[in-house]
Amino acid sequence: MAISISLHQQSWPLAQPFRISRGVKSHAQTIIVTISDGEFQGIGEAVPYARYGETCASVAAQIEALGCEFSSDAALQHAISELKAGAARNALDCALWDFNAKSQSQSVSKMLKIPLRPLTTAQTISLDSTQNMAVAAKALANAPLIKVKLDADSVLDKMRAIHVAAPHSKFIVDANEAWNFDLLKAVLPTLKQYNVALIEQPLPADNDQVLAQLTPCVPICADESCHTRHQLAELKNRYQAINIKLDKTGGLTEALALLDEAKQHGFIIMTGCMVASSLAMAPAFLIAQHADFVDLDGPLLLSSDIACGFEFHGTQMAQSTPFIWGEVKAHSNKIAEL
Rank of each mutant, 00 (worst) to 15 (best):
C56M: 02
D208G: 07
K102A: 13
F312H: 11
H168C: 09
T228H: 04
P118F: 03
F171I: 14
V148G: 03
S107H: 01
P299N: 08
L66R: 12
A50W: 02
L83Y: 03
L191P: 08
V33L: 02
E82Y: 00
P144E: 09
G67V: 06
F70N: 15
K245P: 09
P202W: 01
S71T: 15
I20P: 02
H230F: 05
E327D: 11
A46N: 10
A288Q: 13
T315L: 01
K110P: 00
A241W: 05
I80D: 09
V47L: 05
K147W: 00
I114T: 14
L7I: 06
E337D: 11
R229S: 10
V294D: 09
N100K: 14
A88G: 09
T55F: 02
L256E: 11
L140V: 12
T249N: 07
A330E: 08
V155P: 02
M111D: 06
S72K: 09
R19L: 03
Q9G: 02
P204N: 05
V164P: 00
V196Q: 05
A336Y: 01
K25S: 05
A175L: 06
Q104Y: 01
A175H: 08
H265V: 08
A212L: 00
I306Y: 01
G326Y: 01
Q264F: 02
L296H: 10
N142Y: 01
S320K: 12
A186T: 15
K84W: 02
G298P: 14
S105Y: 03
G67T: 09
F293I: 15
D157I: 09
L279N: 06
A166D: 12
A280H: 04
C94I: 11
G38V: 13
E261N: 05
N243Q: 13
A65M: 06
H230S: 13
S4H: 06
Q316T: 14
A257C: 05
I63D: 06
A57R: 12
A284T: 13
D98P: 09
S225Q: 08
A65Y: 00
A60G: 03
S225V: 07
V24T: 15
A257D: 15
G266A: 07
H331C: 07
A178G: 04
V148W: 00
L7P: 01
C226F: 03
I220D: 04
Q77G: 05
A291T: 11
F171G: 11
A136W: 00
P48R: 08
F18C: 07
H8R: 15
L203Y: 01
I125P: 10
A284V: 11
A276M: 02
E64F: 00
P115Y: 03
L14Q: 10
T190E: 11
L184G: 04
E311L: 09
K248Y: 04
C68N: 13
L183A: 04
V135K: 13
D297I: 10
A222F: 02
H313T: 15
K170G: 09
I244P: 07
A291F: 01
L246D: 11
A139F: 02
E69P: 02
V47D: 06
S72Y: 09
C221T: 14
G53S: 07
W12T: 14
N207C: 04
Q104R: 15
D73R: 12
A336C: 08
L184W: 02
E337A: 06
T34F: 00
G309K: 08
M159W: 01
A134H: 11
V155I: 15
E177T: 07
L246I: 11
K329R: 11
L119E: 08
M270C: 09
W12F: 12
A262F: 04
A28K: 05
C68P: 03
